[in-house]
Amino acid sequence: MKKSIAVIGLGRFGMSILKTLAESKCDVIGIDNNKDCVAEAGKYVQHVVICDSTKKEHLEELGVQNVNHAVVCIGKNSQASILTVINLKELGVEKISVRVDDEEYIKVMQKLGATEIMFPERDFGIDIAKRISLKDSTIEEYYELEDGFVHVKFKVNENFTPIKIKEVKSIVKFEVLVALIIRGDIAILPDGEAEIQPNDTLYVIGKHAKVVKFESYVNG
């Protein structure tokens, strides 16, 4: 079953989210009170409407209470964002992501029931910093998980001296989990006795800084 998502607020930020979700084959409804934004969004999704999201009855008429996830991207109009989150919560929407442009509204939105806070200015800076830190690494895949944890994939260089995972942890205390080792055509679910060998492909989970440090140790 497709995941149904309402994107409320179709400025540049909201539009980019709507387009990405549409490309991911999600069932998306776009909502904005600006007809030009609605017309633009109509190029990417079939279901897009002009609506004042600060009015709960308007959202209810659209069936927003039936979506799996609502993404509030209204931006600098904090009052409209607050009222929209309240309406979504009262309608029973379980997952609510909301954009904030001021740190003082983070706790407000969390107390109102937002399950995810999007802070574009801060998060954009963090993303740039992460990309810079990965620039000279061999990390091929990078996925963000919950609570600051990430999941990465990288290949061990051919000059690496084989070492057991438990020895790596005892020597340098990286606090990472080597979740999977690919060696040729073989997939290995490693324990502490498993060896990391040259040309292995590793799937590693941990905090960003720890994972980057671990990759640097292996391939430095």
Rank of each mutant, 00 (worst) to 15 (best):
C37I: 06
D123C: 08
V172L: 06
R122W: 13
K210E: 15
V172M: 06
E193H: 09
I171M: 12
I96L: 09
P120Y: 00
E60R: 08
L88V: 00
G220E: 07
A80E: 13
L10A: 11
V93P: 01
L88Q: 00
Q79W: 03
E116A: 02
H58C: 08
L88H: 00
I86S: 12
I205V: 14
I132M: 13
G63S: 04
T201P: 05
Y143E: 14
V204W: 06
I5S: 05
N34W: 04
V178G: 09
I29Y: 03
R122C: 13
K210L: 09
G125H: 13
E193S: 15
E140N: 13
D200H: 05
E193P: 10
F154D: 11
F154R: 03
C51G: 12
I8E: 05
R131M: 14
K166Q: 14
D123I: 00
V49W: 01
K89E: 13
I163A: 13
D127I: 14
L91T: 00
I117R: 04
C26A: 15
K207V: 00
I31H: 01
M109P: 00
V45H: 04
V108N: 06
G113M: 08
G30E: 02
V100E: 12
L83M: 14
A22S: 13
R131W: 11
V38K: 03
E146S: 15
Q46A: 09
K107P: 04
V67D: 03
E215A: 06
E146Y: 12
F174T: 13
N77I: 03
A129W: 02
G220K: 05
P198L: 05
E23C: 00
K43S: 02
D27G: 04
I165D: 10
T54Q: 07
I165K: 04
P190Y: 08
P162Q: 13
L112I: 15
K55R: 05
N159S: 10
P162Y: 06
N68G: 11
K135L: 15
I163P: 03
I96Y: 01
D102C: 11
L10F: 11
K3W: 00
K89I: 07
I8G: 01
L59G: 05
N219C: 11
K107V: 14
F119S: 13
K153P: 03
R131L: 12
H58M: 08
I31L: 11
P198M: 09
V211Y: 00
E57F: 07
V67E: 03
V7S: 07
K2H: 07
F124N: 13
C51E: 06
E167V: 15
G206P: 08
A6P: 05
F149K: 05
R12Y: 10
S97C: 04
K153I: 14
K107Q: 10
S53Y: 03
H47F: 08
L62F: 00
Q110N: 12
K155Q: 10
T161N: 09
E193V: 10
P198E: 11
A209E: 14
K207L: 11
G75T: 08
L21G: 02
V93Y: 03
L91M: 09
I165T: 00
K213A: 15
T20P: 00
I128W: 05
A187L: 08
D185C: 13
S78D: 12
A129Q: 06
